[in-house]
Amino acid sequence: MLVTEKNNMTEEIEELVRRYGRERSSLLPILQSIQRKHKHIPDFAQQEVARLLDIHPVEVFSVISFYSFLNTKPKGRFIVRLCQTISCDLQGKAAVSKAIERELGITFGETTKDNKFTLEYANCVGMCDQGPAMIINERVYFKLTPEKAVQILNELK
Protein backbone atom coordinates (compact mmCIF):
# COMPACT_ATOMS: atom_id res chain seq x y z
CA MET A 1 0.00 0.00 0.00
CA LEU A 2 1.30 3.47 -0.88
CA VAL A 3 1.76 6.03 1.87
CA THR A 4 -0.95 8.26 0.40
CA GLU A 5 -3.34 5.34 0.23
CA LYS A 6 -2.54 4.55 3.85
CA ASN A 7 -3.19 8.15 4.88
CA ASN A 8 -6.50 8.19 3.05
CA MET A 9 -7.47 4.95 4.70
CA THR A 10 -6.55 6.30 8.14
CA GLU A 11 -8.62 9.42 7.58
CA GLU A 12 -11.53 7.36 6.41
CA ILE A 13 -11.41 5.11 9.46
CA GLU A 14 -11.04 8.06 11.81
CA GLU A 15 -14.21 9.49 10.30
CA LEU A 16 -15.99 6.15 10.80
CA VAL A 17 -14.81 5.98 14.41
CA ARG A 18 -16.16 9.48 14.97
CA ARG A 19 -19.49 8.40 13.55
CA TYR A 20 -19.88 5.05 15.29
CA GLY A 21 -17.92 5.60 18.51
CA ARG A 22 -14.98 3.78 20.08
CA GLU A 23 -16.83 1.05 21.94
CA ARG A 24 -16.16 -2.58 21.14
CA SER A 25 -19.68 -2.71 19.71
CA SER A 26 -18.71 -0.11 17.10
CA LEU A 27 -16.44 -2.63 15.44
CA LEU A 28 -19.03 -4.27 13.20
CA PRO A 29 -20.59 -1.12 11.68
CA ILE A 30 -17.09 0.23 11.02
CA LEU A 31 -16.01 -2.99 9.30
CA GLN A 32 -19.23 -3.09 7.26
CA SER A 33 -18.64 0.45 6.03
CA ILE A 34 -15.10 -0.37 4.95
CA GLN A 35 -16.32 -3.56 3.30
CA ARG A 36 -19.06 -1.70 1.43
CA LYS A 37 -16.65 0.85 0.05
CA HIS A 38 -13.59 -1.26 -0.72
CA LYS A 39 -15.22 -4.65 -1.25
CA HIS A 40 -12.73 -6.04 1.23
CA ILE A 41 -10.94 -4.97 4.43
CA PRO A 42 -7.23 -4.54 3.73
CA ASP A 43 -4.58 -5.64 6.26
CA PHE A 44 -3.64 -2.07 7.00
CA ALA A 45 -7.25 -1.06 7.62
CA GLN A 46 -7.63 -3.88 10.15
CA GLN A 47 -4.63 -2.64 12.09
CA GLU A 48 -5.85 0.96 11.98
CA VAL A 49 -9.29 -0.05 13.25
CA ALA A 50 -7.59 -1.96 16.05
CA ARG A 51 -5.41 1.02 16.95
CA LEU A 52 -8.31 3.47 17.00
CA LEU A 53 -10.59 1.22 19.04
CA ASP A 54 -7.69 0.20 21.31
CA ILE A 55 -8.15 -3.50 20.65
CA HIS A 56 -5.75 -5.94 19.03
CA PRO A 57 -5.49 -6.51 15.28
CA VAL A 58 -6.06 -10.22 15.78
CA GLU A 59 -9.43 -9.47 17.38
CA VAL A 60 -10.47 -7.51 14.29
CA PHE A 61 -9.24 -10.33 12.09
CA SER A 62 -11.11 -12.85 14.22
CA VAL A 63 -14.39 -10.96 13.72
CA ILE A 64 -13.81 -10.65 9.98
CA SER A 65 -13.05 -14.35 9.66
CA PHE A 66 -16.25 -15.15 11.54
CA TYR A 67 -18.59 -13.33 9.15
CA SER A 68 -19.06 -14.52 5.57
CA PHE A 69 -19.93 -11.03 4.39
CA LEU A 70 -16.61 -9.58 5.50
CA ASN A 71 -13.42 -10.56 3.72
CA THR A 72 -9.76 -9.67 3.86
CA LYS A 73 -8.89 -10.30 0.22
CA PRO A 74 -10.50 -8.48 -2.71
CA LYS A 75 -13.29 -10.34 -4.44
CA GLY A 76 -15.17 -9.72 -7.70
CA ARG A 77 -17.31 -6.63 -8.26
CA PHE A 78 -20.44 -8.76 -8.00
CA ILE A 79 -20.54 -11.40 -5.31
CA VAL A 80 -23.07 -14.05 -6.23
CA ARG A 81 -24.24 -16.08 -3.24
CA LEU A 82 -26.53 -18.97 -3.99
CA CYS A 83 -28.50 -20.39 -1.12
CA GLN A 84 -27.51 -23.99 -0.48
CA THR A 85 -29.91 -24.81 2.33
CA ILE A 86 -32.41 -27.63 2.10
CA SER A 87 -35.52 -25.71 0.93
CA CYS A 88 -33.71 -24.14 -2.01
CA ASP A 89 -32.08 -27.46 -2.71
CA LEU A 90 -35.46 -29.17 -2.96
CA GLN A 91 -36.76 -26.43 -5.25
CA GLY A 92 -34.07 -26.90 -7.89
CA LYS A 93 -30.88 -25.30 -6.64
CA ALA A 94 -28.71 -27.88 -8.41
CA ALA A 95 -29.87 -26.93 -11.88
CA VAL A 96 -29.44 -23.22 -11.13
CA SER A 97 -25.93 -23.70 -9.78
CA LYS A 98 -24.88 -25.64 -12.88
CA ALA A 99 -26.29 -22.93 -15.14
CA ILE A 100 -24.45 -20.20 -13.24
CA GLU A 101 -21.18 -22.11 -13.28
CA ARG A 102 -21.47 -22.68 -17.01
CA GLU A 103 -22.37 -19.06 -17.68
CA LEU A 104 -19.51 -17.60 -15.66
CA GLY A 105 -17.00 -20.34 -16.47
CA ILE A 106 -15.96 -20.74 -12.81
CA THR A 107 -16.86 -23.05 -9.98
CA PHE A 108 -18.08 -22.08 -6.55
CA GLY A 109 -15.45 -20.35 -4.44
CA GLU A 110 -13.75 -18.79 -7.48
CA THR A 111 -13.59 -15.36 -9.07
CA THR A 112 -13.76 -14.67 -12.82
CA LYS A 113 -10.54 -13.57 -14.49
CA ASP A 114 -11.89 -10.08 -15.15
CA ASN A 115 -12.62 -9.75 -11.40
CA LYS A 116 -16.25 -9.12 -12.14
CA PHE A 117 -17.96 -12.08 -10.48
CA THR A 118 -17.24 -14.11 -7.38
CA LEU A 119 -19.34 -17.22 -6.90
CA GLU A 120 -20.13 -18.56 -3.42
CA TYR A 121 -22.64 -20.62 -1.55
CA ALA A 122 -24.63 -19.05 1.25
CA ASN A 123 -26.55 -20.70 4.01
CA CYS A 124 -30.25 -19.95 4.41
CA VAL A 125 -31.08 -16.45 3.20
CA GLY A 126 -34.62 -16.61 4.56
CA MET A 127 -36.40 -17.05 1.21
CA CYS A 128 -37.38 -20.64 1.84
CA ASP A 129 -40.89 -20.18 0.46
CA GLN A 130 -39.61 -18.61 -2.76
CA GLY A 131 -36.56 -20.68 -3.59
CA PRO A 132 -34.16 -21.17 -5.12
CA ALA A 133 -32.76 -17.83 -4.03
CA MET A 134 -29.49 -15.98 -4.45
CA ILE A 135 -28.02 -12.71 -3.31
CA ILE A 136 -25.91 -10.54 -5.56
CA ASN A 137 -24.09 -7.93 -3.52
CA GLU A 138 -26.96 -6.67 -1.37
CA ARG A 139 -29.93 -7.56 -3.56
CA VAL A 140 -31.95 -10.77 -3.26
CA TYR A 141 -33.22 -12.69 -6.32
CA PHE A 142 -35.76 -15.46 -5.79
CA LYS A 143 -37.83 -18.11 -7.61
CA LEU A 144 -34.83 -18.73 -9.81
CA THR A 145 -34.77 -20.99 -12.83
CA PRO A 146 -31.60 -21.71 -14.76
CA GLU A 147 -32.74 -19.35 -17.54
CA LYS A 148 -33.69 -16.59 -15.14
CA ALA A 149 -30.38 -16.81 -13.29
CA VAL A 150 -28.42 -16.58 -16.54
CA GLN A 151 -30.50 -13.62 -17.63
CA ILE A 152 -29.84 -11.78 -14.35
CA LEU A 153 -26.10 -12.35 -14.71
CA ASN A 154 -26.12 -11.16 -18.29
CA GLU A 155 -27.85 -7.96 -17.30
CA LEU A 156 -25.03 -7.28 -14.85
CA LYS A 157 -22.23 -8.05 -17.30
Binding site: Q46, V58, F61, S65, F66
Partner: peptide
Protein backbone atom coordinates in the same frame (compact mmCIF):
# COMPACT_ATOMS: atom_id res chain seq x y z
CA UNK B 1 -2.74 -13.25 25.56
CA UNK B 2 -5.53 -10.70 25.31
CA UNK B 3 -6.79 -10.22 28.86
CA UNK B 4 -3.94 -11.21 31.15
CA UNK B 5 -0.99 -9.93 29.13
CA UNK B 6 -2.78 -7.54 26.75
CA UNK B 7 -0.42 -8.52 23.97
CA UNK B 8 -3.10 -9.87 21.68
CA UNK B 9 -1.50 -12.42 19.39
CA UNK B 10 -4.00 -15.26 19.50
CA UNK B 11 -7.72 -15.33 18.78
CA UNK B 12 -10.28 -17.77 17.45
CA UNK B 13 -10.33 -17.62 13.66
CA UNK B 14 -13.19 -18.76 11.39
CA UNK B 15 -16.44 -20.28 12.53
CA UNK B 16 -18.16 -23.52 13.37
CA UNK B 17 -16.22 -26.70 12.74
CA UNK B 18 -13.48 -24.68 11.04
CA UNK B 19 -12.75 -22.67 14.17
CA UNK B 20 -9.13 -22.71 15.19
CA UNK B 21 -6.83 -20.52 17.23
CA UNK B 22 -4.78 -18.35 14.94
CA UNK B 23 -2.75 -15.19 14.64
CA UNK B 24 -3.33 -11.96 12.77
CA UNK B 25 -3.70 -12.84 9.06
Amino acid sequence: CIDLQEVGVLEAIDRGDKTHIGTFL
